[in-house]
Simulated assay, not measured.
Amino acid sequence: MGTQALYRSFAKNYFIGAFPERNVETIPAREWMQWLDTISLDKPKTANSLFTKLRACLNFCKSKFIIEKTDLDRIKRQHVGKAPEVGTRVPTFSELSMIWLAIERSRASSSNKALHQLTMLWGSRLSELRLARRSHFDMEAGIWTVPKELSKTNTPVRRPIPTKARVILERVMATYDDVLFPGGDLDRPITISAANRYIRRIRDGLPIEDWRTHDFRRSLSTGASELGVMPHVVEKMLGHELGGVLAVYNKHDWLKDQLEGYELYAEKLDSYLK
């Protein structure tokens, strides 16, 4: 669902209207390149990512025999814009505290603010929370289960609900119904584009190095490890599949160890918020 939303957002912002009333099979490579180069002037990384997503969409159409071929196949990715760099940004606890307070003080819906603060605390993928439903949270047992439909690994992900996250989650549950993080329509989750727009506003108002929501995952991985949380537990906190023999035979979630890790992480963040 998160991937579909991302592709729809790209289509709305770039694809639709780019070649009005044209058959995609008849657009020559030169026109494709000119269009991509125009985008690349201001957003070279976006152009590169856009090309990759467009090629994937058209390849899907070819696999379903909706179209035969397109001239986009003649273009190589390395010739379009600039490839995104491998993520290395790790916001520090000091920076996380600045982001947290900026979110807290912002004029936004409580669902939007809670979505990003909880993402920071859990180190989850944004769409795991964005698309979450009330039924995914067992408040009595203290477990959040991401169903396989929302998991990048196509397997359920179980995380404990730490104290600081519980306080925010209970407030969200007291305000909203089944959809816990809605946008303008209370029956629909906030869109990925709306969530990203909000974070851009927060980011633009802070005097810190460029960052994005996904970087919270590296912060949790690094911060929890520095606090002594074992690597296999950190991997489970991030919702990763374990490698090797563990992936085949060991289905344990280490929920107790995860909870201890999350509590330590939240306590460390709190020390910077005071």
Rank of each mutant, 00 (worst) to 15 (best):
R197W: 05
I190P: 00
F216H: 02
T191N: 11
L206Y: 09
D210P: 07
I190W: 02
R203Y: 07
F216K: 00
Y198Q: 04
Y198P: 00
A194T: 06
W211A: 00
A194S: 06
D204I: 06
L206W: 09
D204P: 02
S193E: 14
R200K: 15
Y198I: 05
D204K: 12
I199W: 04
I199M: 15
D210G: 08
I190S: 00
F216P: 02
D210L: 10
P207L: 13
G205T: 05
D210N: 14
D204L: 11
I199Y: 04
P207R: 07
R197N: 15
P189C: 05
I202W: 04
L206P: 04
H214M: 12
D204Q: 12
D215H: 00
F216D: 00
S193M: 10
R212N: 13
D210C: 11
A194Q: 00
R201W: 01
N196C: 11
D210A: 09
R201T: 01
R218V: 02
E209M: 13
R188Y: 07
P207W: 00
A195K: 07
H214V: 06
R218C: 02
R203H: 07
I192K: 11
R218W: 11
D204M: 03
T191F: 04
D210E: 14
I208L: 14
F216M: 07
A195T: 04
P207F: 03
R188W: 02
R200N: 12
T213C: 14
A195S: 07
D204S: 11
F216Q: 00
P189V: 01
P189Q: 11
E209I: 14
Y198R: 07
A194K: 03
D204C: 09
R218I: 01
W211C: 08
G205M: 10
R203I: 02
I192G: 15
